[in-house]
Computed example of a mutant assay.
Amino acid sequence: MSLVNTPLKPFAATAYKQGKFVDVTDADVKGKWAVFFFYPADFTFVCPTELEDLADIYPTLQGMGVEVYSVSTDTHFSHKAWHDTSPAIGKIDYYMLGDQNHSISNNFEILREGVGLADRGTFVVDPEGTIQLVEITPEGVGRNATELLRKIKALQYWVSHPGEVCPAKWEEGEKTLAPSLDLVGKI
């Protein structure tokens, strides 16, 4: 069953963010757009490339009213150690949530059974706390932050422009579609 259009489930976790440990709950997420960016584990291979890529667009996302929460089943202590020792991870200013009890991973149905690690998954949550986008990739395939940015822009446009939809490869400022009987069979 898809998680799209389902509500964010309650959670509480400790995160590492900008040199501090901070508590985060589902209540902190509501009221703004949010990205939950799950990855298998700290001190690995593909994960730091993705997290660094996301760190590079984080200021742009913040400017769009989007907060980022990276999540793995490691502890917030492990996140700090990784942040302090990896040049790529050292660029991160967004929340790095520890999910050692697997509650967040289970909420998003992203935990690999019997392994204790999250799959590589991206979830975009709207300000009302509804999951609007789900993307899951296999462990060996990294994600592209620029494509995530494009999808968030499309989501925000679609939500704020009822009656319009964003076609494939839509970029900000490009033409949208207004679904109607007149368009059926003409695209």
Rank of each mutant, 00 (worst) to 15 (best):
L3C: 07
P7G: 03
V22Q: 12
V22R: 10
T25K: 11
D26Q: 13
D26I: 00
D28R: 06
D28T: 08
V29M: 06
K30E: 05
G31H: 07
K32L: 00
V35F: 02
F38D: 02
D42K: 07
F43Y: 09
V46Q: 08
C47L: 04
C47S: 12
E50S: 04
L51D: 06
L54M: 15
L54K: 06
L54C: 03
D56V: 13
L61H: 07
M64K: 15
M64T: 00
V66D: 08
E67K: 09
V71E: 09
V71L: 08
S72K: 07
S72D: 11
H76W: 13
K80P: 09
H83F: 13
T85K: 14
I89R: 08
M96D: 07
L97D: 09
G98M: 07
D99Q: 04
Q100N: 15
N101P: 01
H102G: 01
N107Q: 05
E109Q: 15
E109P: 04
L111A: 05
G114M: 08
L117E: 10
D119T: 11
D119C: 06
F123G: 04
F123V: 06
V124L: 09
E128M: 11
G129S: 06
T130E: 02
E139G: 15
G140H: 08
G140S: 13
N144M: 10
A145V: 08
A145T: 09
T146F: 01
L148M: 14
L149Y: 07
K151W: 03
I152V: 10
I152Y: 04
K153A: 14
K153C: 10
L155W: 10
L155V: 09
Q156I: 10
V159H: 13
P162S: 05
G163D: 03
G163T: 12
V165H: 00
K169R: 12
E174K: 14
T176H: 12
T176V: 14
A178V: 14
D182W: 01
K186G: 02
I187D: 04
